[in-house]
Structures are given as structure tokens and as C-alpha cells.
């Protein structure tokens, strides 16, 4: 610790020593570079033609011109942005935005109410209800897809055992194939993790805050609105990032719930379908992946400052 602080011209030994002591910093940047190489390669390849991608590695892109290929070329981006199959990319991006915004805000609100109730309203069976809710994190959500699709497309019916009469609990509302079906599904699937995360945080808020508020005559709704929400902005933003990333990048749930209604399909489905059969046009995925990554990145950078503080209080004070 002391060797590096000596002022003036240092002899060779300490200089080597200081150099080697900085290994941890290199390790950081080596890791960062390693983590970025794959994405960087994608970026370079997205600017190359199909045959160029096939015949040489992206680090040789600078030779493309000599090999008779265009580089850099925007033709992949043009093809992606001009895609018309599966509803087109502009339409897909709109649908993605619609899905991700609503499926981020509504679960956060619902989970915040529930987390508050689990943390600060006393009632019988609270602990077990909470454990039961969190245990549902373990459900592989794919199993819910077909029953939910059935419910959206033809309602929910149940046969009462003894009298053998079929009862319609939820009528057929024609939700299948629409974006609201995706909202509802994402909302339900997000709740266990959202409640888990928010509850950690909200339960860790100082108790005296609530007591003094109650003495002032505030009811639960007021406490929640005036006290809990402002104090929880960090964790709400943190969850918002995760949920936005997941819903924006989701492919399976949206495709299953929307199916053959192509005007409602999100951008991930549009881009995936560009590849075509046998991966014929797979080179277009390079550009497509970048186009759909832009939005979540913007969201990440916008919410990042909340994010860091957010998770902290929740997970550390547990």
C-alpha cells in the first residue's frame, strides 16, 4: 500500500510492483471488453451483406470492399425497416410499446398495493398468504399459456359436479388475439416477483413514519399514496426496468396470445419472422436485433439512476 505512494522518480522495482498491483483494474476492463465483443460483432455484421457474413468473420469487415461486398451497407436495416410481412416493423414497434408500457405500469401499481397490504396491514393468515404468493415464482409460466388462451377465446366454464350443469364463470369476451390479452397475462405473471421485490423494500421502511401518520389521522389509502409511493420511487423504478425489458423482449407470450392476428403482433415476432424458413434470411436478424434493442436501452439509461438506489434498500435491509 505504501510503495505506490512514494513521490519522484521511482526505481524499477516499485514501478513494476505498482503496474502489477493495478491488475484488478485491467481485469475489470478485460471483462467489459469480453462482454461487449459479441454485441460489437453483431453491430459490425449488421452492416455487412449476407454473403460477407457467411464467408468471413466480422473483424475482417474492413476487407469486404476488396472482396466485392459492400461495407458498410445499410441494406439489412432497410430490409428490416421496410419489412411488410407479419404486419411490418413500425406497427410491431407500436404494439411492443403498447404491450410494454401497460404491462409495466399496471403490475407495478397492483404489486405496490399488495406489497403494502402484506407489509403494513394486519390481518389473519397474512404470512401464509404472502408465502403462497411468492411460492408461485416457481410456476413455469408456459403451463399457463393454453388455459389462459382458452379463457380469453371462449371464456371460463365449469361443470358443477353433483347437478352436472355447466356454468359460465367468465363469458367469452373475444380477448384472444388482442393486445389486452397480453396485458392481462404479463400482469399476472409479473406479480409474484414484483410483490417479492416491493415487499422487501416497503416492509423495510421505518415504522415510526407510519405510526406518526396514523396519529395524524391518515388512513391506509392516504398513507400509501402520500408516504409509501414517494419513498418507494427507487424500487418502483428498479422493477420498472426489469419488467419493461422482459415485456418488450417477450416473444412467446405475445405470439401465443395474439396468434394469427398480425396487426397486433409485437416487434420481436416481426423481427424473428424475417429469418424465414431454414434461416434463409437470418442475416437480417443482426439489424433487427439492434432496432428492437434501442428502446429498452433508452429506458435503462433513463431509469438507471433510480435503479441503483432502488434495489439496495430492498435487498440489503431485507
Amino acid at each position: 500500500m505504501t510503495a505506490t505512494t512514494t513521490a519522484g522518480r521511482r526505481p524499477l522495482g516499485p514501478r513494476i510492483y505498482g503496474f502489477l498491483r493495478s491488475i484488478p483494474t485491467w481485469v475489470l476492463w478485460i471483462l467489459v471488453v469480453l462482454w461487449t465483443i459479441p454485441t460489437f460483432g453483431l453491430l459490425v455484421n449488421s452492416l455487412r451483406t449476407r454473403d460477407a457474413q457467411r464467408t468471413s468473420g466480422w473483424w475482417l469487415a474492413w476487407q469486404d470492399g476488396a472482396n466485392g461486398f459492400d461495407f458498410p451497407t445499410l441494406q439489412n436495416y432497410e430490409a428490416v425497416l421496410g419489412a411488410e410481412a407479419t404486419g411490418g416493423l413500425a406497427n410491431g414497434l407500436l404494439n411492443s410499446a403498447s404491450i410494454a408500457i401497460v404491462a409495466t405500469i399496471i403490475p407495478i401499481a397492483i404489486a405496490a398495493f399488495a406489497a403494502y397490504a402484506f407489509a403494513w396491514i394486519d390481518f389473519r393468515g397474512r404470512e401464509w398468504l404472502f408465502i403462497g404468493t411468492i411460492a408461485l415464482l416457481a410456476v413455469p409460466t408456459q403451463v399457463s399459456l393454453i388455459p389462459l388462451l382458452q379463457a380469453y377465446s371462449s371464456g371460463v366454464r365449469m361443470t358443477i359436479p353433483i347437478i352436472e350443469k355447466t356454468v359460465t364463470i367468465i363469458p367469452d369476451m373475444g380477448l384472444a388475439g388482442t393486445i389486452p390479452a397480453v396485458w392481462l397475462t404479463h400482469t399476472g405473471f409479473a406479480l409474484p416477483f414484483a410483490i417479492f421485490l416491493l415487499h422487501n423494500y416497503i416492509a423495510g421502511l421505518p415504522k415510526d413514519l407510519f405510526e406518526s401518520a396514523r396519529i395524524d389521522g391518515a388512513d391506509h389509502f392516504k398513507i400509501f399514496w402520500k408516504l409509501v409511493v414517494p419513498l418507494s420511487i427507487p424500487v418502483l423504478a428498479a422493477f420498472a426496468i426489469f419488467q419493461f425489458l422482459w415485456t418488450w423482449n417477450d416473444y412467446l407470450i405475445a405470439l401465443t396470445m395474439i396468434g394469427g392476428n398480425r396487426v397486433a403482433l409485437p416487434a420481436t415476432v416481426v423481427v424473428a419472422s424475417l429469418a424465414g424458413e431454414f434461416g434463409l434470411r437470418e442475416h437480417l436478424l443482426t439489424a433487427g436485433a439492434f432496432v428492437i434493442t434501442v428502446v429498452p436501452l433508452v429506458v435503462f439509461f433513463a431509469l438507471q439512476r433510480f435503479f441503483v438506489r432502488g434495489i439496495t434498500a430492498g435487498s440489503v435491509k431485507g
Binding site: L145, L149, Q150, Y152, S154, A176, G259, G260
Partner: peptide, 12 residues
């Protein structure tokens, strides 16, 4: 997907 859509009652 066609399996899911058929079984889920939302076929084309």
C-alpha cells in the same frame, strides 16, 4: 404455435 392456438380455442 398452431398447436397452442388450436388447443387454446383461438385457431385461425
Amino acid at each position: 404455435q398452431i398447436n397452442a392456438q388450436a388447443a387454446g380455442g383461438n385457431p385461425p
